[in-house]
């Protein structure tokens, strides 16, 4: 038994390491390009090490991104928290309180996910202007939350679908109300799905360019607009662009690592049907 177990453990680690190599290869290339001088950025020699480390690319990239960093944080933090709470509430109501036509409502909400945002920009801007939320960050937070409703509702609903109804019934017999069950039974069980949803919403809002550039004034542009400006000018400094991309990815990465603790196994014995 033991040698077989060692062999299978080795195999698992081997596969994980190989997979990591695949996931890291493009990041490595970004890092490599990010420390090269401009003249050495070349397709043919992309794998060559730089003649000298050009950390100033990162400084130049930071100078480009820094003014917009605060805007991004103000956008993303309330957005991801509110959005996941709303999604959790919706998911709970739609999976455990199946009122009349709740499946139809769920389907209609879900369909909103597929709307191609590029095709509704004009009515969106007009409507946001009408409700006086055009131009600033709150409006952008608002729009991200709304367009996040389908996806957050979906993830939570399908996650809660796995929680046994018997447990809720038991709670009800003990006299817990709709809100009570949510607070004391559902919410404590939701940690992994909160991690999954916050990862999604945080990344979407952080990396969103389209809504940001269309819905906010220049003073409130988040980092993606600066990043896009690095990538889309007539002459592109690939080295600075790569440095900026890595810098812009850091907060998201930090969130992924912080949320890692929510991926704990077996939260509550017998919580899932089976």
């Amino acid at each position: 038994m033991m040698p077989r177990r060692i062999a299978s453990r080795t195999l698992i680690y081997l596969i994980l390491i190989l997979a990591s190599a695949f996931f890291l290869l493009p990041i490595y290339l970004m890092l490599l390009t990010g420390v090269k001088p401009f003249a050495e950025v070349d397709l043919k020699t992309m794998w060559n090490l730089p003649s000298s480390l050009h950390i100033e690319n990162f400084i130049a990239a930071w100078a480009q991104l820094a003014p917009n960093l605060k805007n991004s944080l103000i956008l993303v933090i309330p957005e991801s928290i509110l959005s996941s709470l709303l999604g959790s509430l919706n998911g709970y109501l739609l999976s455990k309180w199946r009122f009349k036509n709740s499946n139809l409502i769920f389907t209609l909400i879900l369909f909103g996910m597929f709307i191609p945002y590029q095709s509704i920009l004009i009515p969106l801007v007009k409507f946001m202007d009408f409700i006086q939320l055009y131009g600033g960050l709150p409006g952008l937070v608002f729009v991200h939350i709304i367009y996040g409703i389908p996806i957050t509702t979906l993830i939570f609903r399908n996650y809660y679908a796995g929680i046994s109804t018997e447990m809720l019934e038991a709670g009800r017999i003990d006299g817990a109300s709709l809100t009570g069950l949510y607070r004391f039974l559902i919410l404590p069980l939701s940690a992994p799905s909160f991690a999954v949803v916050i990862i999604w919403q945080f990344t979407q809002a952080w990396n969103d360019f389209l809504f940001a550039v269309i819905l906010t004034n220049q003073a409130y542009w988040p980092v993606t607009v600066a990043l896009n400006n690095l990538a889309g000018s007539q002459l592109v400094q690939w080295n600075v662009l790569m440095a900026a991309t890595l810098l812009a990815a850091l907060p998201t990465l930090l969130v992924y690592l912080l949320l890692g603790r929510f991926f704990v196994r077996g939260l509550m014995a017998g919580s899932l049907k089976g």
Binding site: Q118, L121, K126, D129, F209, V213, I214, A231, G232, S233
Partner: peptide
């Protein structure tokens, strides 16, 4: 940036429409 997808023109067009 004008670059990929002509972002600049889309932003401008949307603002003009609004």
């Amino acid at each position: 940036a004008g670059g990929a997808g002509s972002n600049a023109k889309a932003v401008l067009a949307t603002r003009l429409q609004a």
